[in-house]
């Protein structure tokens, strides 16, 4: 029986992963007025990482992406909770968000919202949880 090689799969993965990462970041930032947001952006990011784990193997991806996903989940939940606590200090209800318009050098008049910080926490928690589930299921040692 011939030994299977996956040179085409690895070549496609090197191109497709970049596109999927870009699309995930686009979905993440589109979430304020359009469909998208932290949850679905994190899921698209986790899909790209899953594609890398599928076409390569666990050790070579972990060597180039040295992040402990359990720590990533904890940091994400902590960021989300602390952003929600921000409203409490100003005598407002929990999870109160604020936004304002700023003049940035390149972008011009830009709306900056603290909901983006909360979304970063949600995205990190989703990426960490999905990758911990996949790595736990796939490991056979």
């Amino acid at each position: 029986m011939k030994k299977p090689n996956d040179i085409i799969l690895r070549g496609v993965t090197k191109v497709a992963v970049v596109i999927i990462f870009t699309f995930a970041i686009n979905l993440f930032f589109a979430g304020h007025h359009n469909p998208g947001g932290g949850f679905i952006g994190g899921l698209a990011f986790a899909a790209a990482l899953t594609l890398m784990f599928l076409s390569y193997d666990v050790d070579s991806v972990r060597a180039n992406f040295p992040v402990d996903f359990k720590v990533l989940t904890a940091v994400g939940v902590l960021i989300a909770v602390l952003t929600g606590m921000g409203g409490v200090f100003f005598d407002l209800p929990f999870l109160t968000q604020a936004f304002d318009y700023f003049h940035l050098p390149i972008f011009g008049k830009t709306e900056l919202a603290t909901a983006v910080l909360f979304d970063i926490g949600v995205a990190l928690a989703v990426i960490g949880t999905a990758m911990v589930i996949i790595m736990t299921i796939s490991e056979d040692r």
Partner: peptide, 28 residues
């Protein structure tokens, strides 16, 4: 776009499971 990405990854995972018997290899 998202449906295309997820369908692509799902098909690759099934194909690897059929050909190798293991979906994600642990060591190189």
């Amino acid at each position: 776009l998202l449906l295309g990405i997820l369908s692509f990854i799902g098909t690759i995972a099934f194909a690897r499971f059929l050909e190798r018997g293991v979906v994600i290899e642990s060591e190189r």
